[in-house]
Amino acid sequence: MCKRLLTAASAVFVILAAACGDANSSSDTTEKTIFAMDTAITFKGGREDSQKAAELISELDELFDRYSEDSEIYAINHRQNMELSEDTKRIIASSAELSEKYGSDVNIFSGDITDCWNISSGNPRVPSDEEIEEALRSCNNSSFSLEAMSFADENGSIDLGSVAKGYALDRVHEELGEDSYYIVSSGSSVLLNGNKPDGERFTVAVRDPETGGTLGTVRTDACFVSTSGGYERYFELDGKRYSHIFDLNTGCPSETDLISVTVICGSGIESDFLSTLIYLGGTARLGEYLYSEEFSVIAVTEDKEIYLSEDVDFELTEDSYEIKELSDE
């Protein structure tokens, strides 16, 4: 009887489990999280789309991770001969183009600078002036040839940190197309596509750099959104806090008066690149970007002031901040 009972009981469980599973998948959309590109990436959308996006991003991560010996960027940085994938060639060429167009304060040939601060090891140190100068030279006068896709001498290395997630979102968008509804979120960069099931516009919460809570929300149509800030990832040396975003003019961690910059536009790699560039430029250079017709900006200063592009539909939810207009000083 015991055996029969067990069988009956397991049947009950199976039925319940199946019912339960059905309840959870009542719609076609699913949520899925993977760990790649040094962060957690969440997909919302159709099951098949989410699976495709997850695979694509994992593949790109394997190509772009300069600390992984099997990656193509590692091969380039260590002067190994390797047949490069289209994606590696494209991200390098697009990044170089963006540096040319908007300014080389964000530059993928800056790997030697982060390396000489020893950040990735978890044991950061302040490098000597000579080390910084050498790293700066390899970055600002890089011997990298876009035709050969290689460095001509032994100085310099590539770090795709400022563009990899944005590029990955562009590729997901290419792969999944314009029509279906999906959201890919990597923490600092988000891709929103299609029409929401409830027909509303998308709402993106911008994180409060001080508390980690919500600073305010942006309403948008399908687009790419990226945020840069020095607040979450930093390292401490002798009691001083250093940003993980580097100033390529000084070779030191940036000391901008902005604490968070969000860029909204039609390209993932551009929003990723521009949020870092504008963040580095500080309020002094904000006027060059705030009025652009190609992208929209939300910039937050250390004095808790917020500057917005005119076309941003932003609602402030955190009272301790204040929305300001840029003065013509």
Partner: peptide
Amino acid sequence: KSDSADAVVG
């Protein structure tokens, strides 16, 4: 809650 955001950035 229908007012919760679709994504958080930052």
